[in-house]
Nucleic acid binder design. Structure first.
Length: 414
RNA sequence: GGAAGAUUGGCCGAGUGGUUGAAGGCGCACGACUCGAAAUCGUGUAAGGGCUUUACGCUCUUCAGAGGUUCGAAUCCUCUAUCUUCCGCCA
């Protein structure tokens, strides 16, 4: 969430970002609500001051009946005002959550189609292998039994494909470790505070894409980003310890309601997949550099795997609430003859940090919110699609990319 | 799942109704000593909000969370969460 005072001081900018991101929030109404809150707060504080001074006068011990009477009447008056105040506070707070993060100047305006290609790598292939046909013919994936056991879009990975998944993970893990990330596995469920603090829609929202546990304040994570965002919740971190680089490996669960169609065939869009996610807590002045660092690692991974891709700077209308800027890395699908999303990385500035209250203590003692960034190191289901499409052979086999051979017994082919 | 105990500032840890926003220690910052450093000594050091005379100002809130008792709560009561130990269960 944004800081109410930041909104007041940067009203035009906040309004512009909110509109560009496609949010309908009436910012002026929120400010007016907050003004009302302040008025009540002033009254409450005046009463409390009086109460405190009466209590202080009685410290000696002598019970003065008039004072006690006065105290009693203040107590009465306070209780109604205080409940009014807390009501107003939660209204303001909920409204604040509906205002998205401000975008950076270099974010293209407009909808999805306005995203800008910033880099391109590799030579796009003209012909590829359908990943699902290949995997099915080799008994590498079983969607039918996945559906029988858990429903549509659940699957079993088998044999060489399951081994390929493991190889991709090992490869990705090696990369992030080389770049100084510390590896962790995370809880696969988080509380609503963490979910909403990360910027995801609450249980009550129609847009929510998460699986919620009935009767518990828990949801299955859609990405390890959620679990890691909560990792330092309510903490104040020493400046010297930043940046903190985490690579979290977890299962990811998404409802993906209504997201079926030609381009979501097979493993491309599923309800459950595994992912290694990079996450950084850093100083505000470091976050832009860290964003480029994460993007660089993502590019390095796909270059070494030999998969052609391009990088796009996501337009405002396609950005989520927490992101100030986001890059997507899309690989060239030789099957669909188009670019398809493979990874993405976002700079969330202090938006998430404010919501989950993660701060830094500067050398001079000042405390402020950190910046957070997240990026996909390797999302296994999609990574497998990209590899199969690019490395499938004419005779129904899979050529092993050089970078993965060490993790597949140095085999040339699967 | 059952029982007992615990939860205090960046960290550790005193504190059972009224100079406690909170002793002491660690850490950190600054200063002294030093050629420099270590050690030592001294001083300072919670966060968040509001107001204005923007001042080393005034004020409010916060001792896990929520509610209650009281003129007054870190301290008493209730519920919830988490942690520890014991029992049960178990990969």
């Amino acid at each position: 969430m944004l800081d109410i005072n930041f909104i007041r001081q940067n009203l035009a900018e906040v309004k512009k970002s909110t509109a560009e991101k496609g949010y309908k929030t009436d910012i002026d109404a929120v400010l007016k609500m907050d003004d009302e809150r302040k008025e009540i707060q002033k009254k409450v504080e005046a009463l409390r001051t009086e109460r405190n001074s009466i209590a202080a006068q009685m410290k000696g011990g002598k019970p003065a009946p008039e004072l006690i009477e006065k105290g009693k009447s203040i107590k009465q008056e306070l209780s109604t005002l205080e409940s009014e105040l807390s009501e107003k506070e939660s209204l303001v707070n909920n409204a604040l959550k509906t205002i998205p993060n401000v975008i950076f100047d270099d974010v293209p305006l407009g909808g999805e189609e306005c995203s800008v290609e910033v880099k391109k790598w590799g030579k796009n292939k003209e012909k590829g292998t359908d990943h699902l046909d290949l995997a099915t013919s080799r008994d590498w994936v079983d969607f039918e039994r996945g559906a029988k056991v858990a429903g549509a879009k659940f699957y079993y990975l088998k044999n060489e494909l399951a081994l390929l998944e493991n190889a991709l993970l090992q490869f990705g893990m090696k990369k992030v470790l080389e770049h100084g990330f510390s590896y962790m596995t995370t809880p696969d469920l988080v509380s609503s505070r963490v979910l909403e603090g990360t910027g995801f829609a609450p249980r009550s929202s129609e847009q929510s894409d998460e699986y919620f546990i009935e009767g518990e304040d828990l949801a299955l994570i859609a990405t390890a980003e959620m679990a890691i965002t909560g990792y330092h919740m309510d903490e104040i971190i020493d400046e010297a310890k930043l940046p903190l680089l985490y690579a979290g490996y977890s299962a990811c669960f998404r409802k993906e309601a209504g997201a079926y169609g030609k381009y979501t065939r097979g493993l491309f869009r599923v309800h459950q997949f595994n992912k290694l996610e990079m996450y950084i807590f850093c100083l505000p002045e470091q976050s832009k550099e860290m964003h480029e660092k994460i993007l660089g690692i993502e590019e390095e991974i796909w270059q070494e795997l030999g998969i052609p891709y391009h990088v796009i700077n996501i337009a405002a209308g396609d950005l989520g609430a927490p992101a100030a800027k986001k890059y997507d890395l899309e690989y060239w699908s030789p099957v669909n003859q188009k670019y398809q999303e493979l990874t993405s990385c976002s700079n969330c500035t202090d938006f998430q940090a404010r919501s989950v209250n993660v701060r830094v203590r500067r050398k001079d003692g000042k405390v402020e919110f950190v910046h957070t960034l997240n990026g996909t190191a390797i999302s296994l289901a999609r990574a497998m699609v990209a590899v199969l499409e690019n490395y499938g052979t004419e005779d129904g086999k899979l050529k092993v990319p050089e970078a993965l051979k060490p993790y597949l017994g140095n085999r040339d082919e699967l």
